[in-house]
Simulated scan of single mutants.
Amino acid sequence: MNMTEIKEKAKQMGIQASKMKKVDLIRAIQSKEGNFPCFETAKDYCNQLSCAWRDACLPAKGLEKKYEQTKNLYLKKIKGELKTLTDKLTDLKKKSQKTMGAGKAEALAEIHKLEQKIESLTKNAHGLATASEDAWKITKQGVDKAWEELRASAKKALAKFS
C-alpha cells in the first residue's frame, strides 16, 4: 500500500493523517482497528497473525525467514540425533541376538519400547515441521519433553545392555 492509500484508509477511519510519518500512521490505524500498534517493531517474530499490515511489516525485517531458519535447524538436529540413536539400537538389537534367556527377552523388550518412543517423537517432529509460528512454541515444548524422556530411556537401556 502506498502512502496515498494509507492516508485514505486513515481518513476513512477518522484519523488525522496530516504530516504523520508512514510508520506512525500505520500504528494509528492498527490501534483504531483494535490491534497492537507495533508496525516494524518486532525483533524475533510477530504473533499478530490477523494484522492487515503483517506482510508489509515482516519482509522489511526478514523475520519470517529467521523463524523458518530456527525451525529448520532444530528439526535437523532432532533428526540427526534420532538417526544416531536408531543406529545404536540396531547395533544393540544385533548384540542381543547373541544373548540367551531372560536377558535377551529383557533387552528386546527395552529396544521395542525405545523404537516406539522414536516413532512417536518422529511424528511429533513432523507436526513441528508444519507448525505455524504461534504453534511452534507449544509444539516444540512437547517435542523437547518427549526427546528428553527418550534420551534418558535410551541412555539407561544402552548402559544396561551394552
Rank of each mutant, 00 (worst) to 15 (best):
79 K>N: 11
146 A>L: 13
101 G>D: 01
18 S>L: 06
18 S>C: 02
102 A>Y: 06
102 A>C: 03
25 L>R: 02
41 T>H: 01
131 A>E: 08
12 Q>A: 09
25 L>H: 03
77 K>G: 00
78 I>G: 01
158 L>N: 10
34 G>M: 07
143 V>I: 08
106 E>I: 08
156 K>N: 05
112 H>I: 04
162 S>L: 13
102 A>D: 13
141 Q>P: 02
136 W>V: 03
85 L>H: 03
126 H>M: 04
114 L>N: 06
101 G>R: 00
10 A>V: 06
126 H>R: 05
130 T>I: 06
56 A>Q: 14
155 K>V: 05
20 M>F: 09
51 C>N: 06
140 K>L: 15
142 G>Q: 14
14 G>F: 10
57 C>F: 10
34 G>R: 02
19 K>F: 04
112 H>Y: 10
29 I>V: 12
70 T>P: 01
143 V>Y: 02
132 S>I: 00
58 L>N: 15
110 E>Y: 03
76 K>R: 11
52 A>H: 01
52 A>G: 02
37 P>Q: 07
28 A>P: 09
40 E>M: 13
123 K>S: 13
16 Q>Y: 11
106 E>C: 04
66 K>V: 10
20 M>A: 14
69 Q>H: 04
80 G>W: 00
53 W>N: 15
113 K>T: 15
107 A>H: 07
113 K>R: 15
11 K>Q: 13
26 I>H: 04
61 K>M: 07
85 L>T: 06
94 K>L: 03
63 L>D: 00
148 E>F: 00
48 Q>F: 01
34 G>I: 08
112 H>S: 15
158 L>V: 14
77 K>M: 07
14 G>P: 08
78 I>D: 01
88 K>C: 09
84 T>L: 03
114 L>H: 01
56 A>C: 09
3 M>A: 12
138 I>S: 04
141 Q>E: 15
127 G>R: 07
1 M>Y: 10
74 Y>A: 03
82 L>Q: 13
113 K>A: 15
154 A>P: 10
139 T>L: 14
78 I>F: 03
42 A>N: 08
66 K>L: 09
136 W>L: 13
80 G>C: 03
30 Q>A: 14
46 C>L: 02
115 E>Q: 15
37 P>R: 02
9 K>Y: 04
98 K>R: 09
87 D>S: 14
119 E>A: 15
115 E>D: 15
144 D>Q: 08
6 I>A: 07
34 G>D: 08
133 E>G: 10
50 S>I: 03
156 K>G: 01
28 A>V: 10
106 E>W: 01
9 K>A: 05
154 A>H: 07
136 W>K: 07
120 S>E: 14
146 A>P: 02
15 I>E: 08
116 Q>G: 15
148 E>K: 08
72 N>D: 14
64 E>N: 15
38 C>K: 03
89 L>V: 12
66 K>G: 04
26 I>A: 05
139 T>R: 12
92 L>Q: 11
63 L>I: 04
64 E>P: 00
31 S>D: 12
114 L>A: 05
